[in-house]
Design a protein around this nucleic acid. Sequence first.
RNA 1: GUUCCCAUCGUCUAGAGGCCUAGGAUGCCACCCUUUCACGGUGGAGACACGGGUUCGACUCCCGUUGGGAAUGCCA
Length: 489
Amino acid sequence: MQQKIRTRFAPSPTGYLHVGGARTALYSWLFAKAKGGDFILRVEDTDQARSTKESLDMVLSDLKWLGFDWQEGPEVGGECGPYFQSERKEIYKEHADRLLKDGKAFYCFCTDEDLEAKKEKAKAEGKSPVYDGTCRSLSLEEAEKKLAAGEKGAVRFKVPQAEEFVHHDVVRGEVRWPQDMVGDFVILRSNGMPVYNFCCAVDDALMNITHVFRAEEHLNNTLRQIMLYEAFNYPLPKFGHLSIILGEDKKKLSKRHGATSVNEYKEQGFTKEALINYLLLLGWSSPSESEIMEMSQMLEEFDMDRFKSSAAVFDEAKLKWMNATHLRAFSTEKLWALVSEVLTKNGINVSAESTWQDPKWQEKALELYKVRMETLLDAVTPFKYLSEASFEVAEAGAETMTWEKSLEVVSTWKALVAEKSEEFLSVEQFEEIQKQVQAKAEVKGKNLFMPIRVAVVGVPQGADLKDLVPLIPRDKLLERAEKVIASVK
RNA sequence: GUUCCCAUCGUCUAGAGGCCUAGGAUGCCACCCUUUCACGGUGGAGACACGGGUUCGACUCCCGUUGGGAAUGCCA
């Protein structure tokens, strides 16, 4: 009987969930789901200064939006709780005491200044700047005496002697470290708070995690954590260290690269299907070389092999393409749900008596979303691209068109619209007007079409004008045309 | 400084010694389609970082160089 697979994602609630974290969560969640295991969520909030409730809520809601449900963790509980590290202090204390008692850890009373000076010296001599073992031989009794006298001491782990440490990584294969790479490291701060490496190892062991997927920057930490597992005699999980995600400039993705959080992409109208699909393939490849993948296929194909060990650049252009491709494959119901959400968020009423609730308009909205979501909003929200618009009129027919001619088209269009009396133009009326403009101004094709388009939507892109014009009140059309004329002058 | 990780088109990647004149996708360019497109079609430019080995044969294995990244915290 094979052991049940348990993976985890352990965010620290110090900000939004960024795409790198989302990818780690995706791999962990997907692996558990694909293998019939459990996905556990643990909150690493030992840094009280930086952890906030707001951040936690953001991270949780992003995870939910992506569809990564956890079987144990915040909100759902579980047998291995608590799932907040801030609530597990007793457990860490008890573990530290055990090491202390077994002589596998010791109290250290060195000051920051001493440590700093020694580090500088070692660096200057070209040695690895590791802890030199000053307090290593201090007995537990002596240490306790100092403590009783009011001295503050941190607890350090006594790094065992070995020639070298070997680790088999799921992503990287065999990794070897020389034994002097790490010195006796702190597991409990002098204020009693445990540090990351200690909590992480203890928690993963106690929560029976079988597979740990995390970012590459933790690779060196793994050595420390493995030593802790061995000191406690806990079975070792498999570790997989995922490559870093980089920005366009090949530097680690950060805020200065623009959008990096899941929430920002969500707000911009990206679907979770596209985001997941894109992230999946940023560091992992499908055995069938598939590109656009549905969740069912991901579940079927995902495994621990096929991870890419080199860093990957996050390419928004490809994400956009994926988004468009997924959108086109959406069912009508799914698209409408998406559109109503966007409309509601932009203050447009989608209640029962609303125009948009009319099946006919629903259909229109879907078409429009398919084409370009921004334009859908343009049709009902303030006209925003005006200054650029006048520029585009000239650009549209740059080679054969003059400003004057474009202006003539718009003026003619406006005059003809003004002749109508209905509140909204019909598709037929629109087509008739268009023909008349063509005849009067003696232009056709793009030279005819672009100026009218700009007069209607303000930008040279968007949904079919036949769909848009009937949505816009006639006086609004006149007003817009007038604005374009004014801006060109 | 020291240690570790990484290296195929601009980008994401396929590639487990001969299947490679290196495949796909995206992006870019051209033409076609279309009275706009985050639509469709056809075609094009575009990569094994460098130098040594090993081998009959290397994108694939080994070593080195260069370049990038990470760690070296009483941050996570």
